[in-house]
């Protein structure tokens, strides 16, 4: 029971971070600021959600799979952020030239 409440709290907290990231995405002025809000908030939201789901998982195998999913989603969202920022920087470089 306590474990359930803890897990739900973590997942709700994770969802709150996703909402915060989305608000940042909608409200911030340029792409780099938006990326800043989105990558950080979503990374934390993802971690908290995974932690919460891990507490609800039934077996060691499930936990291992959730952790793997967390690792790869975190890695790929970091790479996505990097690629978008790189693209933005190149695009602005060509404009200034």
């Amino acid at each position: 029971m306590i474990l359930d409440i803890l897990a739900l709290t973590l997942i709700a907290l994770g969802a709150a971070f996703f909402v915060a990231g989305t608000i940042g995405l909608l409200r911030f002025p340029d792409t780099l600021c938006r990326l800043h809000a989105l990558t950080k908030a979503d990374g934390l939201g993802m971690g908290l959600t995974c932690l919460g789901v891990t507490l609800l998982a039934g077996s060691a195998g499930e936990i291992a799979r959730i952790l793997l999913i967390w690792f790869f989603v975190a890695a790929s969202s970091a790479i996505c952020g990097h690629l978008i920022a790189r693209h933005v920087r190149r695009a602005t470089d060509t404009e200034e030239r």
Binding site: L68, F72, A75, S76, I79, H82, L83, R86
Partner: peptide
């Protein structure tokens, strides 16, 4: 190609 960081990611993700 998409840069060295992307290549590193590809090396990490490909086996998975």
């Amino acid at each position: 190609h998409l840069g060295e960081i992307y290549r590193g990611f590809a090396r990490l993700a490909l086996p998975a």
